[in-house]
Design a binder for these strands. Structure first.
Lengths: 124, 124
DNA sequence: TTCCATGCAAACAATTTGCAGCAGT
DNA sequence: ACTGCTGCAAATTGTTTGCATGGAA
């Protein structure tokens, strides 16, 4: 990504505004401001940005990948009932990982499958 | 899965022998012993088994899902250079997660992206 | 004998890619 | 002007599914 295009700016702005979006969702939002934008462009930009560390790519079990504005290491909780994605803070995780990997040079992706508070309440 | 079929037994045996296999890899191995087995059957069985907790499904960034014989909670390290998947033990992780989620009822999937020892050595 | 699981092929979803033309520097 | 990025559509990849039939209990 050498040039800062309109599409690039738009996509980044959308990710900043909302969070944990799929490429499809970003695309649907982007079309509102730029009707001729292509889904392929959205994918290309999202992947490029994820590579550059400007955003984060999260894999969700049994669903499309999502993209997150928060770059700093943090975790995600995925609710199997409603499919929602929530941020989660796991204290002491980085230290545990450093010890296990034996190096500081790593990235990680942690997703926890658990019912969110809303669904847990609804279940009763 | 009510019936214990030949295909089911074969697939389970393959997962036990090798580890961290993609559905495609399991299929290629299965065909050797059972030439008429279908890829769809492999997928159906793997997913069924993962659901039942007999094996584990692991999501790998930018690659097909893999299936693992080890059911007990453990983590994976994925080497960005060679694409290899290694088991990893992260001490104290479960405790950290229990605290963060606020419940004992959860599953999780942690994958760490870091160069494996082999690739780290080769890089020098 | 009763269903479930299989094989097969077609459908599907998510994502990537080739290429001609447009846009950013 | 140069070159990279876009839009478009077609291609790929990974996975699921409908249906007739063979196999397990």
């Amino acid at each position: 990504m050498k040039y800062l295009t309109q599409q690039c700016k738009l996509i980044l702005a959308i990710i900043q505004e909302f969070g944990h979006m799929t490429a499809e969702e970003v695309y649907r939002e982007a079309v509102k401001a730029m009707p001729k934008i292509a889904l392929g462009t959205v994918y290309r930009n999202l992947n490029e940005m994820a590579q550059d560390g400007r955003i984060r790519k999260i894999r969700v079990p049994d669903g499309p990948d999502r993209f997150d504005k928060t770059v700093s290491p943090h975790e995600h909780m995925i609710c199997p009932k409603c499919g929602g994605v929530l941020d989660l803070e796991v204290k002491g995780l980085t230290e545990c990982l450093k010890e296990a990997v034996g190096s500081d040079d790593f990235q990680y992706d942690l997703s926890v499958n658990a019912c969110c508070a809303k669904c847990r309440a609804a279940q009763q």
